[in-house]
Amino acid sequence: MASGEGRAGSRGLDPATQFPLLYEREYESVFRTVRAMVLDQTEAEDLTQEVFARAYRARLRYRPTAPPGAWLHRIAVNTALSHLRRRKLARLLPVRLYQAPDERAYARSEARTVVEAALAALSPKLRAAVVLHYFHDYSREEIAAILGIPSGTVASRIAKAVAVMRRALSEAPPGGGAGREPNSAPVGFEQ
């Protein structure tokens, strides 16, 4: 799929009255953003459903200040960030109340591609910014609105993210696989 195709297709749709169409056109797009943030296929599938469930509940509150695609991506980013916070908290708990799914992702690190390993070197917000900009073709202003950060900082963060990815890709072992230790802190995690 060409970048930004689904976004153009959903422009002008009203979530309140055309939610099924929006769901159909944006599902894969939202899935990819979530997948880039959590770096796990199964978690991304569950979270994408949660995103649309939240969006469905909020559909009557949608205001056309942003395209519906951007509105959905904002919900997706917030849902993924909440999930990652819960995951981090679960890892800190001395007694595990449930099996946190994060270990699955890193346990399979050898199966991950070099690009995924490079993305793993970034913070979730930077991952979202990179994918929204370079894959979905969102402008810096739109990304700023989606991430809830000033638009002036988006460009520098994207440039920083690309620099980190370039370095991570150059350090990746030949033939693929993760080039980063699972426990090392991602860049920009404080952001």
Binding site: M1, E28, F31, A36, E45, V115, A118, V162, R166, L169
Partner: peptide, 19 residues
């Protein structure tokens, strides 16, 4: 890799992700 290479790799990777 150049910035362009990184972006192309990223696009190809993300494009392959499907539910």
């Amino acid at each position: 890799p150049s910035e362009r290479d990184v972006i192309e790799l990223l696009r190809a990777e993300v494009d392959a992700w499907r539910p």
